[in-house]
């Protein structure tokens, strides 16, 4: 699980645009090391260059660790700034939801010894109050014009990281706020982990490290001309079973959007975890590898329902391959697509699942 956390963190570094939590990473060891990464769309040349830069900076073992951190942070702040800004905004949004003390509790109720320990960890002098110091940091984050300054972004990340590390800090900070601070600090967490992992590699492995994108087919756009109600009705009619009425469907599923006059344009893409798993499994099968293999896939996003089903089906087909992915929130997304050349039994299983979802909807409504 520690390894998966690391992979999830590394995946975060590859999310170069806000609102596109799509990166995934994969490490494989068997004497050599291969690092594969993918998004829901092919990487641009500049993004691929950025990934190489990250690894080059991380592996400059002749430089001091501090220098490597600085170089990495500069590259990340430059390339991921939209996402970083959105994480800062999320911290500030929570601050605004809270009362005037901004969700920072008084340290008076904590044992003195613990307060001293926390102060030392955060570099706060004995005469200063922990609470005031945290509040002044949150206030410093607020003015929006600072978001343009890379140095400010770097500072915000580094401080958020050090605030989020001590486990006892949860006694002082509103839990939701702390979660958001920690997410901001994850960038620094990823940098320290990356440098740490690279330092563990023997030099000969470092020299032969493979870092490679696994591109999915480019996303395409399709138009859905029917409403969801029509789709469920048509599905039932086709099977000669009872059709739900629109009223029934709307009573049962109040969140169903009202039909729009215009058509729905959907972007279809192969999700990154499916692309990676397909590639690695294909490689293993071609090599004729039969011993037990564990694939750990780090993701910067939650797994969607269909990816989960896809993975379950792959696991069933290749019982000697264990696939581990850390997050799952079971969202249903539109535009999900099977990887090209998916074996028939896997695509059938995914299709069966989709049919059973529609049947469940129909049953509830009828």
């Amino acid at each position: 699980s520690k390894h998966l956390v690391l992979l999830d963190l590394l995946a975060l570094l590859l999310v170069t645009e806000a609102k596109s939590d799509v990166a995934a990473t994969m490490l494989r060891t068997n004497g050599s090391m291969k690092f594969f990464y993918s998004k829901n769309r092919p990487f641009t040349d500049s993004e691929n260059k950025y990934v190489r830069t990250l690894f080059n900076y991380a592996s400059e073992t002749n430089r001091s660790v501090a220098d490597r951190y600085t170089n990495l942070m500069a590259a990340i702040v430059d390339k991921c700034q939209k996402k970083i800004k959105s994480r800062i905004s999320k911290v500030l949004r929570r601050v605004r939801e809270l009362s005037t003390d901004r969700g920072i509790h008084s340290e008076d109720r904590l044992p003195l010894e613990l307060v001293e320990k926390l102060k030392a960890k955060l570099g706060i002098g004995p005469e200063q109050s922990l609470k005031n110091r945290l509040i002044s940091w949150l206030d410093y984050l607020s003015p929006a014009q600072r978001l343009k300054d890379p140095e400010f972004l770097r500072y915000a990340i580094v401080t958020a990281h050090s605030i989020g590390i001590p486990s006892d800090i949860n006694l002082l900070i509103d839990q939701k706020l702390l979660r958001r601070i920690r997410k901001l600090g994850d960038y620094m967490g990823a940098v320290t982990q990356l440098v740490g992992e690279v330092d563990l590699l023997p030099p000969q492995v470092l020299q032969t490290l493979v870092i490679q994108e696994v591109p999915p087919p480019p996303p395409d756009r399709i138009v859905i001309e029917k409403t969801s109600v029509e789709i469920v009705e048509q599905w039932a009619r086709n099977r000669h079973i009872e059709e739900p009425t629109e009223t029934n469907l709307r009573i049962q599923f109040p969140s169903l959007p009202q039909p729009l006059s215009q058509q729905n344009t959907i972007t279809r893409s192969v999700h990154c975890e499916c692309t990676l798993i397909t590639k690695i499994v294909d490689d293993l099968v071609q090599q004729g590898t039969s011993p037990l293999v564990t694939l750990e896939v780090g993701v910067s996003k939650s797994l969607c329902n269909l990816c989960e089903v896809f993975m379950g089906s792959v696991k069933k087909r290749y019982p000697n391959i264990t696939i581990m992915v850390s997050t799952h929130h079971g969202k249903n997304v539109s535009g999900w697509r099977l990887p090209p050349l998916t074996p028939l039994e896997i695509s059938r299983e995914v299709e069966d699942h989709i049919n059973s979802c529609i049947e469940e909807i129909r049953c509830k409504a009828t």
């Binding site: 048509q234 539109s334 999900w336 909807i361």
Partner: peptide, 16 residues
């Protein structure tokens, strides 16, 4: 009548 396509079904599920 042709059955709904997979894309259409995925779309319907995502809305419900």
């Amino acid at each position: 009548e042709v059955p709904p396509t997979l894309d259409e079904m995925i779309f319907a599920i995502s809305q419900i």
